[in-house]
Design a protein around this nucleic acid. Structure first.
Ligand SMILES: NC(=O)c1ccc[n+]([C@@H]2O[C@H](COP(=O)([O-])OP(=O)(O)OC[C@H]3O[C@@H](n4cnc5c(N)ncnc54)[C@H](O)[C@@H]3O)[C@@H](O)[C@H]2O)c1
Ligand SMILES: NC(=O)c1ccc[n+]([C@@H]2O[C@H](COP(=O)([O-])OP(=O)(O)OC[C@H]3O[C@@H](n4cnc5c(N)ncnc54)[C@H](O)[C@@H]3O)[C@@H](O)[C@H]2O)c1
Lengths: 224, 224
DNA sequence: AGACGCTTGTGAACGTGTGCACAAAGTTGC
DNA sequence: GCAACTTTGTGCACACGTTCACAAGCGTCT
């Protein structure tokens, strides 16, 4: 299954959930594609990797397709997650209710700062980083979320991996190396803003260029 | 300039900043690529879109290259940003110091909940959503960050666009439509976790398959 | 039953992105 | 000044992803 397809399955799943809540039983690729914000041909090709679950002339059965995608992503089970670094961002993530409803259970919160240890967040006590290995093993945690400062990120990831975590989502703006077999994804908010800034700048440049062109046209019109 | 290159420039910029802080004056594509976590050929090709700023046999001058990338992304100026939705995530973003150091100034905080309006976060008073248009225009804001619940996201984006915002970073798990000329990027944390879960499941599947294979081999060895 | 209309699933063309490999261009040492 | 060495910039081949376009399949209506 192509990586690009995998990245879109959660999108389809969300769209299907919304449709199911609205009581829609059947949906065409065109409609579902619109709900997910993608091209319908792409949607059909993506779904074809799961198998032939559509009915020609009709479309896809919402509940059935939802189940197939859920199974494919591996959300039939709940995944235990540990969050490391309970600062601004860690708190927000811990308080976020959207994870539980999407197959993830925040199983533990960990911080290195003794003054944060013991604090209760959403019914979970923050535990000390020294206990990380024990926690991961006891709770069978496979997924770690890193929300520490950048300088601690590599160390934290090393310790997560050593403890047995094989998937990491990193929020710290740092390049982190992990051994083969461990999946690492990063979310980089500053980068996202900088990409927007790049296009924003070019928009303004284009606007100025257009004005110049309009000026030239105007000049020609006056001269002509 | 290819979009993939644009998405990597912030990465290079960060690596260069780290090198500059360490007092490094010159860097080869190989070293810089390692710092940024990419292939060196890709790095050189990316940089070649900016112009020929390297010296063969030597490498790139750190400060000079940093300036060139800064200019290309459009970070010679500071961009004013408004955050809409000051809940868990909005607070974390508002409190985050990393934006200011990367060319972004959080200029305004907006929420629809009257009980949140007036609250002070990092020296900024939260203002009411009704004032959004006025705020955007008065402060010359071009970039908006949406951290509201999903059901409000489309409405908020529409209002941001109507007020003159032309770049939006959306954290809400919702498909949002914007008119041509407006850039929309989304950060979707649940999706990231789900992608990790997919690979995690396959890792376990692969492990099981391997065990089955080993079992078959074992059986054959016993029979043979 | 058969014709008609609708929708899926997919082959094929196209576009974008990646990485190798090497000539060109610079530096260093003698 | 020349040879040896280092590193950039890029042509080229390949891999990956997207989109079009259409035949095949299904349901419906007469
Ligand atoms: N807050 C945001 O909105 C935001 C936005 C973008 C990126 N980030 C990044 O996310 C990370 C966290 O940001 P934040 O604002 O929450 O920072 P923060 O300083 O508020 O929190 C960091 C937490 O990590 C803990 N910590 C430090 N070293 C640790 C270690 N070795 N093991 C365990 N815990 C450790 C600290 O005690 C602290 O509680 C940073 O890397 C930041 O750059 C944050
Ligand atoms: N908290 C997280 O870690 C996290 C993680 C992933 C995604 N998200 C997404 O980010 C968004 C915000 O999450 P949160 O946890 O901060 O939610 P939250 O409920 O804590 O905050 C949402 C805020 O938006 C405000 N709001 C609602 N409608 C508004 C409107 N029309 N105009 C302006 N403000 C409005 C609310 O008053 C509230 O203060 C949600 O869509 C959530 O799904 C959050």
């Amino acid at each position: 299954m192509p990586e690009a397809t995998v990245a879109r399955l959660p999108l389809y799943l969300r769209a299907l959930t919304t449709l199911a809540e609205r009581g829609v039983a059947t949906v065409s690729s065109e409609e579902l594609a619109a709900s997910a914000g993608v091209n319908s041909a792409k949607l059909r090709k993506d779904l074809s990797y799961l198998g032939s679950y559509g009915t020609r002339g009709v479309g896809y059965e919402v509940d059935f397709l939802r189940h197939q995608i859920t199974r494919e992503i591996g959300l039939t089970q709940d995944w235990a997650v540990v969050i490391v670094g309970i600062g601004n961002l860690g708190h927000a993530l811990a308080n976020y209710g959207g994870f539980a409803s999407r197959g993830f259970r925040i199983a533990a919160l960990v911080d290195a700062d003794p003054s944060r240890v013991g604090e209760e967040v959403t019914g979970l006590k923050v535990r000390h980083a020294d206990e990380l290995e024990q926690i991961v093993q006891d709770l069978g945690i496979a997924i770690g979320v890193v929300a520490t400062p950048a300088r601690a990120a590599q160390l934290v990831c090393d310790r997560l991996v050593a403890a047995g975590v094989t998937s990491i989502l990193n929020f710290a703006p740092a390049i982190v190396q992990v051994p083969e077999g461990v999946d690492l994804r990063k979310v980089d908010l500053s980068t996202e803003l900088q990409i927007l800034a790049y296009h924003e700048q070019r928009k303004n440049g284009a606007a100025l260029a257009l004005t110049a062109e309009q000026a030239a046209e105007l000049a020609e019109a006056v001269n002509g």
